[in-house]
Amino acid sequence: MTEGMGIGPIEIVSMALIGSGVIFFAGAVAGILRFPDYYTRIHAAGKGDTLSTLLIALGFAVYNLGDLSFHNILTSIKILMICVFIFITGPTTTHVLMEAGYALGFKHWKKDGDQEEEEP
């Protein structure tokens, strides 16, 4: 932060939201890289994508309200509408991918390790 910009409560809230969004994104990336099979990887990607995009967009909306005017409120409402859009489409995409994988017959991961070779 430079000297001219004080950190008010709104900045703190938006920083917390965006920061947690980035942390969840990092978790999703780790999940995609580390999880053992198709289903768990899609699970990590879908969950992380939806929640962290939501958090980051919310952070933007809150930060935008720091300087309150009709125009900024309108922009924040638009960002909230993007949130709603992501909230609906993200899980649906995950669902479709899961179903496609199941229909293609990808095998589940099992802990004892005698899983068949059926990686995408």
Binding site: A100, L104, G105
Partner: peptide, 15 residues
């Protein structure tokens, strides 16, 4: 692939 096509042909309520 054929199984996936059969599966995809079913209407999906969520989608």
């Amino acid at each position: 692939v054929a199984a996936a096509e059969r599966e995809a042909a079913k209407p999906d309520l969520i989608v």
